[in-house]
């Protein structure tokens, strides 16, 4: 499953990437987060710790 974000709210701060427990998130060339690696365990940290609720 891809990372689902609301691009209108995302500020490209990278907090989700920093907090990801498996270190699988990176920012794409436009600054939006995506799953670079395939090791998500759906812990929910990226969503929970997003300062913009994106």
């Amino acid at each position: 499953m891809p990372l689902i974000i609301n691009k209108e709210l995302c500020s490209s701060c990278g907090e989700c990437m920093e907090r990801c427990t498996m270190d699988i998130i990176r920012l794409d060339k436009d600054g939006y987060p995506y799953k670079k690696y395939d090791e998500c365990w759906y812990c929910g940290v990226c969503e929970e710790d997003c300062p913009e609720n994106a």
């Binding site: 907090r19 270190d23 710790d49």
Partner: peptide
């Protein structure tokens, strides 16, 4: 290995 704010078995 992860990031200290959300690491270990109790990520959340």
């Amino acid at each position: 290995k992860g990031e200290i704010h959300r690491s270990g078995s109790i990520a959340m």
